[in-house]
Simulated assay, not measured.
Amino acid sequence: MRRLASALLALGLLVRVPTTAFAHDVLEQTNPADGTSITHLPEAVTLTFSEAPLPIGSQVVVTGPSGPVSSGAPTVADRVVSQALSPSAPAGDYTVSYRVTSDDGHPVTGTFSFHAAIGLDGSTATAAATVHVRPAAGSEDAGNSIFVPVLLTIVGTVVLLGIGGFLLLRGREADASKRG
């Protein structure tokens, strides 16, 4: 019986552990924060993810009242993606759209917004108008990302039950043959 319990536990761990590898990176924090009003526009916008994204294919587009103000390509340092802003960026409402490559190779996209009262060019803006906050999508296939872990859990449970039943019947047959 101990062997059966050990085998089932080991198999259960083997089936459960790989499901964590299917999780995509998640945006944990932005600077400026989504939906906030800040006094001074920073020189760069930063996005912090749950895992270090791959530098390949990273795009961050910062759009202000006068259009795009991104300056150069985004940089990736550990879990932080930074996008420098043009020194001529004015005060006003800003939208940041991003697309990075998750450490598992899948794209992670999203959008967030903020308001800056004073721009990098020294201009000022009136109090923040209504900032349209859009929830950031975890990834393009975020709605389907739970399918694989659930499927693996179901398959693993069926396999565990099958092996457990087989070992139980085999043990009973062995006990019966010892008695007889």
Rank of each mutant, 00 (worst) to 15 (best):
M1G: 12
R2G: 15
R2L: 13
R3Y: 10
L4P: 00
A5W: 09
A5D: 09
L9A: 15
L9R: 09
A10C: 06
G12N: 09
L14S: 06
V15I: 15
R16S: 14
V17Q: 11
T19Q: 08
A23N: 07
A23L: 13
D25K: 00
V26G: 00
Q29P: 00
N31A: 14
N31Q: 13
P32W: 12
G35L: 09
I38R: 09
T39Y: 04
T39P: 01
T39N: 06
L41G: 04
P42K: 10
E43W: 01
A44Y: 03
A44V: 01
L47S: 09
T48D: 04
A52E: 06
A52Q: 07
A52S: 15
S58V: 11
Q59A: 13
V60W: 07
V61N: 08
V62Y: 01
V62N: 07
V62K: 07
G64C: 13
P65C: 01
S66H: 12
P68I: 01
V69R: 07
V69W: 09
S70P: 03
S70R: 03
S70V: 04
S71H: 11
S71K: 12
G72C: 01
A73V: 07
V76T: 14
V76G: 02
D78W: 03
R79A: 08
V81P: 08
V81Y: 02
V81N: 08
S82R: 15
Q83L: 03
L85G: 05
L85K: 09
S86R: 14
S86P: 02
A89F: 11
P90R: 05
P90H: 09
G92M: 11
G92N: 13
Y94T: 09
T95F: 03
V96I: 08
V96N: 06
Y98R: 00
R99F: 00
D103H: 14
D103Q: 10
H106V: 05
H106T: 11
P107S: 11
P107A: 10
P107N: 10
P107Y: 03
T109N: 06
G110L: 11
G110S: 13
T111E: 15
F112G: 08
F114N: 04
H115N: 12
A117K: 12
A117L: 15
A117S: 15
A117F: 02
G119C: 12
L120M: 08
D121V: 09
S123I: 10
T124G: 14
T124N: 08
T124A: 10
A125V: 05
A125R: 08
T126A: 15
A127I: 06
A128F: 10
A129I: 02
A129W: 00
A129R: 12
T130L: 05
H132K: 06
V133C: 02
A136Y: 02
A137Q: 13
S139I: 03
I146Q: 07
I146P: 00
P149A: 04
V150S: 07
V150Q: 07
L151M: 15
V155I: 15
T157W: 11
T157S: 13
V158K: 03
V158A: 14
V159F: 05
L160V: 05
L160Y: 01
L160G: 10
G162F: 11
G165M: 10
G165D: 13
F166P: 00
F166C: 02
L167S: 03
L167P: 02
L169K: 11
R170M: 06
E173T: 03
A174C: 00
A174L: 14
A174R: 15
A176F: 08
A176V: 06
S177Y: 01
K178A: 04
R179N: 07
R179M: 02
